[in-house]
């Protein structure tokens, strides 16, 4: 059905992961960091699907479904944390949160 070499497919997933990693390291806005984490999750799941397609096994897709559940949980908790962060500090910049002291 598709004759793209599996190395190219893995390379594509790797590039996507790299983009997510760069975004996570470069951006300081916490929403953008969360979006980069999503990209990284997605590319990691893609490697599962590529491997499953390569060996014609259903396990790769099963693992992707589990990753979907983990991602959904992670996103909901992280967004709740972001809401609290904005409520307390009135900013989305993570560099503003480096002081371990009480604010009043």
């Amino acid at each position: 059905m598709i004759t793209v070499p599996v190395e190219i497919q893995i390379l594509f997933a790797g590039l996507l992961f790299l983009m997510g990693l760069i975004g996570l390291l470069v951006r300081r806005n916490v929403i953008f960091m969360l979006m980069s984490i999503e990209v990284m999750f997605n590319s990691a799941g893609m490697v599962f699907v590529i491997a499953g397609a390569h060996w014609a096994q259903a396990e790769g897709q099963v693992m992707f479904i589990f990753m979907l559940a983990v991602t959904a949980t992670e996103v909901s908790v992280a967004l709740a944390i972001i809401l609290q962060m904005f409520h307390h500090f009135k900013t989305l910049d993570v560099d503003e949160l480096n002081k371990l002291k009480e604010t009043d």
Binding site: T73, V77, A80
Partner: peptide
């Protein structure tokens, strides 16, 4: 997912 729901509610 249940833990996620409870956690998100509690934190948010």
């Amino acid at each position: 997912l249940l833990a996620g729901i409870v956690g998100a509610y509690h934190i948010g």
